[in-house]
């Protein structure tokens, strides 16, 4: 930038800068304001993308009771969920001793699926309790 432009950015008086219009001047002059222009309505577009449709999944039929059934306790790997499930296991031992409990840590990082485990539960289990969150 040249000196004149720099000085005018400072807002220095044109006395020193003959012929240079001050930069921080008026905007283009326009006609007088319309009556209450802020009340005029305008139309804008919705910026949202298109979400996928959701396939509803019917929940699995419930068991008549847990007596004599096999319940899988699945740990998804978050801090502390194994310890919590262990307490759940102890609760069943105390209160519903006929329930068989199987503790499983889901393989892989928490965002990954574990198809072999789901297959095992499908074959051997009757119900699942999953712990997530820390």
């Amino acid at each position: 930038m040249n000196r004149r432009k720099l000085l005018s950015l400072l807002g220095m008086s044109p006395v020193l800068l003959t012929g240079n219009p001050a930069q921080a001047g008026q905007t283009k002059h326009a006609a007088a304001p319309a009556a209450d222009p802020g009340a005029v309505k305008i139309t804008t577009v919705n910026p949202k993308g298109t979400p996928p449709s959701i396939q509803l999944i019917p929940m699995a039929p419930r068991l008549d009771s847990l007596d004599g059934k096999t319940v899988y306790l699945v740990d998804t790997g978050f801090h502390g969920s194994d310890a919590l499930l262990h307490q759940v296991e102890l609760w069943f031992n105390r209160n519903m001793p006929s329930v068989t409990l199987v503790f499983k840590r889901k393989a892989g990082p928490y965002a990954q699926d574990d198809p072999p485990l789901w297959k095992e539960i499908k074959e051997k289990g009757n119900a699942v309790i999953m712990a997530t969150g820390h």
């Binding site: 807002g11 220095m12 008086s13 020193l16 921080a24 001047g25 008026q26 304001p33």
Partner: peptide, 22 residues
């Protein structure tokens, strides 16, 4: 002494778009 000019106290009237650009 030299005064420093920061422009007029009010800009416009002008359209909102022009003021935004200004």
């Amino acid at each position: 002494m030299m005064d420093v000019n920061v422009g007029p106290p009010v800009y416009g009237p002008d359209t909102l778009d022009n003021l935004q650009i200004h």
